[in-house]
């Protein structure tokens, strides 16, 4: 019992000390440096568009997906997460409704639909699609906008990021940035 009492003070003081050190000081130092050197990233990588008349407008974060439904826009992955087993009957049904949606949305397109357009992501707000998924939509977008396919492709190319160090991760097209560029805002 005496031994327990003897250790209570160090336990409490140590917790307070660590809370100040790891909770307050450490967090404050990281925040300070982050806000000083990388303020744009630290505050959410927001896309701000400045107009000719000097006004500016925020169009969300380049890291968080937005919903697009118009045929003149590049369309991203289904929003939300399913947590379904990929081989379950529920998942097949869900994927089938997405396949049907794509076919009725773009009836002239007979190419195979890329997998990522009919499956939900991990975050539920995946801001990217695969280059194949962007390519699949080029014909439709150029028709809806009366633009040349090569122009659409160029814009997609501009906002495609390759792998890190050639082989780490996967290439990805940022949907929001492509759509902002298509609208002439980027």
């Amino acid at each position: 019992m005496i031994k327990i009492m003897k250790q209570i003070k160090p336990a409490l003081v140590c917790l307070v000390g660590m809370t100040i050190l790891c909770g307050v000081f450490y967090t404050a130092i990281v925040t300070g440096i982050a806000q000083l050197i990388f303020p744009w990233q630290a505050n959410g990588s927001m896309i701000t568009v400045r107009f000719a008349d000097g006004t500016q407008k925020e169009y969300g974060s380049e890291l968080i997906a937005q919903e697009f439904l118009g045929s003149e826009y590049l369309i991203g992955r289904p929003l939300g997460t399913s947590n379904l087993s990929p081989v379950s009957a529920e998942q097949s049904e869900l994927v089938q409704t997405r396949i049907d949606w794509w076919h009725s949305f773009d009836p002239d397109n007979t190419a195979e639909i890329p997998m990522d357009l009919v499956t939900a992501s991990a975050s539920g707000v995946d801001p990217h699609i695969s280059p194949a998924a962007a390519d699949y939509q080029v014909g439709r977008i150029s028709q809806a906008r009366g633009m040349k396919e090569s122009e659409v492709r160029n814009i997609i190319q501009t906002y495609t990021k390759g792998r890190f160090l050639v082989f780490i991760g996967e290439p990805a097209v940022n949907v929001l940035k492509v759509n902002l560029a298509l609208d002439g805002l980027l």
């Binding site: 399913s82 379904l84 997998m115 990522d116 009919v118 992501s121 995946d126 990217h128 991760g169 996967e170």
Partner: peptide, 26 residues
């Protein structure tokens, strides 16, 4: 061993995965 669907290009199991990570990093 991911599922394949009629009319969809097979590219592994992308359900619940992010594009930037893909099959490998996930």
């Amino acid at each position: 061993f991911g599922p394949s669907f009629e009319g969809v290009a097979s590219s592994g199991n992308m359900e619940g995965k992010e594009i930037i990570h893909g099959i490998g990093a996930s």
